[in-house]
């Protein structure tokens, strides 16, 4: 299934309303030939299911892993991927670009 940004945000809402732990990843900065523009979203649940893309497939795996932690501890974090970072090179933005991704939990509690 091909997902669009509207599907992704609607899915994030549906998942959260179903009581699933949900995180939203957003591309907040790009340098060089980044595959997805700033503002692109990826939605992830606590089981590691995801929809959308932040890099066209290169670093989604790493973002999903981090997102599962974000869902667990509730702390937002900013991830950076690019050729300058050896660990990131492993997960691979082979296009040579760099991206910064903000990952936050969707808070279902009314009190927040």
């Amino acid at each position: 299934m091909i997902s669009t940004d509207s599907d992704i945000l609607a899915t994030a809402e549906t998942w959260a309303k179903d009581g699933r732990g949900v995180a939203l990843a957003t591309v907040v900065e790009t340098w060089g030939s980044a595959p997805r523009p700033v503002g692109s979203h990826l939605v992830i649940d606590g089981e590691g299911n995801f929809l959308g893309s932040v890099s066209g497939g290169c670093v989604e795996g790493a973002v999903v892993t981090e997102a599962v932690d974000v869902i667990a501890d509730g702390k937002s974090r900013t991830l950076e991927f690019g050729v300058a970072d050896e660990a990131a090179w492993k997960v691979g933005l082979s296009c040579g670009g760099r991206i910064k991704v903000y990952v936050e939990r969707i808070l279902a509690e009314e009190a927040n």
């Binding site: 945000l9 609607a10 994030a12 809402e13 936050e104 969707i106």
Partner: peptide
């Protein structure tokens, strides 16, 4: 992000 905020955005 609060779910209420996300719902408002989608609406």
């Amino acid at each position: 992000m609060d779910l209420a905020l996300l719902s408002a955005l989608n609406a």
